[in-house]
């Protein structure tokens, strides 16, 4: 038996490592534009615009200095405000709603759930003009709180679906046992529900943060200098500076960094969030 199995096992090991190498190559090819972006951001402009591309160069932080000189900071702060506050608001609105759609469901809970998701399917472009006119008339154009409200409504369906899927993981028996033991609602939330769903809550928050941080369409049409977010800086930077590739790459790296970190941290929960809880 062993004499027969050994070559087969060795063959399997070899094919496994061959496919492993293929996977590594695919991974590197895929990430390469990002690596190139980061490499270019550390070049001088003449190295960045060389043909053939320069692989060896003296790294410099000049481009990052320039980006900060052009005042990227307020844009980053605006993005941070819009993303953090909208994420907080989303979590505050979505978690109780998800509770009322899962553990203690209201009647017609499926319809409500599908109402939420149908708002996500509607193209933002159909609402752009009325939103623009309303915010203009309310004097709320170029105001970060407008963006907080819009990003909240953009992420709310996602968060409701996601939180619901996490809440359904709370074992019903434990909840019922708690109730029998006389635990009130607050106690069971604190002692039973929160410990189980807190990783899910964190993942929901991270994904809402990612979408809010990256949002461009509403930001470009509703904000300008006061409430401009990081993507707006990037676009404005190109048109005002002309094309400076290394500088563009430095700015692009800088504005992508928070989401890259958030996404890497949340990667195990990413698929569940993106599929609104349908895929675990």
């Amino acid at each position: 038996m062993t004499t027969l199995a050994a070559p087969a096992r060795r063959k399997r090991k070899i094919t496994d490592s061959v496919w492993g190498i293929v996977a590594w190559i695919a991974g590197i090819v895929f990430v390469f534009p990002v690596i190139w972006m980061v490499l270019t951001s550390f070049k001088q402009e003449q190295d960045a615009a060389s043909n053939p591309p320069s692989w060896v160069f003296t790294p410099t932080l000049d481009q990052y200095m320039t980006v900060f000189d052009r005042n990227i900071t307020p844009f980053l702060l605006n993005s941070l405000m819009a993303s953090v506050f909208s994420t907080l608001l989303v979590v505050l609105l979505a978690t109780p709603a998800a509770y009322a759609l899962s553990l203690r469901p209201v009647e017609k809970w499926t319809d409500v759930l599908f109402f939420f998701i149908s708002t996500k399917m509607m193209p933002a472009v159909a609402a752009l003009l009325p939103v623009y006119l309303l915010t203009k008339n309310l004097g709320m154009l170029d105001n970060i709180w407008t963006m907080v409200i819009l990003y909240t409504s953009m992420n709310l369906p996602l968060a409701v679906w996601m939180m619901r899927s996490f809440l359904l993981e709370v074992p019903r028996e434990v909840l019922e046992a708690g109730e029998v033991d006389g635990a009130g609602l607050l106690t069971s939330i604190r002692k039973i529900i929160l410990p189980i769903v807190s990783p899910g809550l964190a993942a929901t928050a991270l994904i809402c943060f990612i979408f809010a941080w990256n949002e461009f369409f509403l930001a470009v049409n509703l904000t300008a200098t006061n409430a401009g977010t990081a993507p707006i800086f990037l676009v404005g930077f190109i048109s005002s500076e002309g094309l400076f590739l290394a500088r563009l790459c430095a700015a692009a790296t800088l504005v992508s960094l928070p989401v890259l970190i958030a996404g890497w941290l949340a990667q195990n929960k990413l698929v569940r969030g993106l599929s609104m809880g349908a895929v675990k």
Partner: peptide, 27 residues
């Protein structure tokens, strides 16, 4: 499949999705 560094490769592969779309387009 199982192979050496699988989780690293997965991290590499999801990275494009995390780059800000407008930054990705400009780059």
């Amino acid at each position: 499949r199982k192979f050496f560094g699988r989780s690293v490769v997965r991290t590499l592969l999801i990275t494009p999705f995390l780059v800000m779309p407008i930054a990705a387009a400009l780059v």
